[in-house]
Simulated assay, not measured.
Amino acid sequence: MGMLEGKVVAVTGAGRGIGREIALLAAAEGASVVVNDLGASESGEGADTGPAGEVVEIIKSKGGKAIVNGADISDPLGAESIIEDALRAFGKIDSVVNNAGVLRDRIFHKMSRSDWEDSIRVNLNGYYYVSKAAALVFKEQGHGNFVHFTSTSGLIGNFGQANYSAAKMGVVGLSNSIALDMQRFGVTSNCIAPFAWSRLTASIPAQTEAEIERVERLKTMSADKIAPLAVFLASDRSKEVSGQIFCVRKNEIFLFSVPRPVRSMHRAEGWTPDSIADELLPAFKPSFHDLARSSDIFAWDPI
């Protein structure tokens, strides 16, 4: 028996890339899969259920069970239809993998309102809509799990991605709150930050030699390396794992820390702007973190 035998899993953005590999592995591990994909471009334009249909046909050809859902997750009714289709076709829903996403990269001072709103609408609001629809079912049945995709662009930083970074850090907060709120109902929620070559990473601008080298490294990181962790987190064997942030980089898996106080300073008479400058700043400054991009932290070649 596979790790997901008898389970029903919904994967958003499952027509291509990481989502496709998760859907295929989930089916291989015994799950019935709702393959959601709007089929839009990396910027969120257009619609084509063809890629999702291809994934479903592959699953069925190997004896598995899967259906296509072509909804836009940023539409609340579309998001709800993913869960409704799972219930209609398979009678239940056990796991949601929030993977769909768009990129609207712009350096911040050139970022338009639509660049900002489109990214938040899909990369954060869409995750909320799908999660909320599933949460109502999970609560009643007393079990369920969420696997949300975040990004090191938010966890660490990157150029030209203020909108994407904000959304992906929002996903971390969403996941943690779900984990806290729904723990009593047997529901878990975790995040994965992936390194993998996909349509989205292919759109990353590379102009300097260092940026070109980074893109070349990304090309060696295939999407299938991400799927095993997602499938594990969607299984019953992960029931003691919740509120965590993982990262997958080829054959490496990382666990990220979360913000916690690192220094404190008390002044009985309270603080003034001058005392902050004269006393607190010198005490705190050694603990300040440097500005960094994801590539600065993950600077070595993966094996």
Rank of each mutant, 00 (worst) to 15 (best):
S81M: 06
I83P: 00
E84R: 15
D85R: 14
A86C: 03
L87M: 13
L87E: 14
R88P: 03
R88G: 01
F90R: 09
F90D: 06
K92E: 08
K92G: 00
D94W: 06
S95T: 13
V97H: 02
N99P: 02
G101H: 02
R104D: 01
I107A: 14
I107T: 15
I107C: 11
F108A: 13
M111I: 01
M111E: 05
S112F: 02
S114Y: 08
D115F: 03
D115L: 11
D115I: 00
W116R: 12
W116Y: 10
I120P: 09
N123W: 01
N123T: 10
L124D: 00
L124K: 05
L124G: 05
K132D: 11
A133K: 04
A134M: 10
A134K: 07
A135M: 14
A135W: 00
L136I: 13
F138K: 07
G142L: 11
H143F: 13
H143T: 12
N145H: 06
H148K: 11
G154R: 00
G157C: 07
G157N: 04
N158P: 01
G160M: 13
Q161D: 06
S165N: 10
A166D: 04
A166Y: 01
A167R: 08
G170V: 04
V171K: 11
V172K: 10
S175K: 03
S175R: 09
N176K: 15
S177Q: 14
I178G: 04
A179D: 03
L180N: 12
D181R: 13
M182G: 04
Q183F: 06
R184K: 15
F185Q: 09
V187P: 05
V187H: 00
V187L: 08
T188V: 08
C191P: 06
I192T: 06
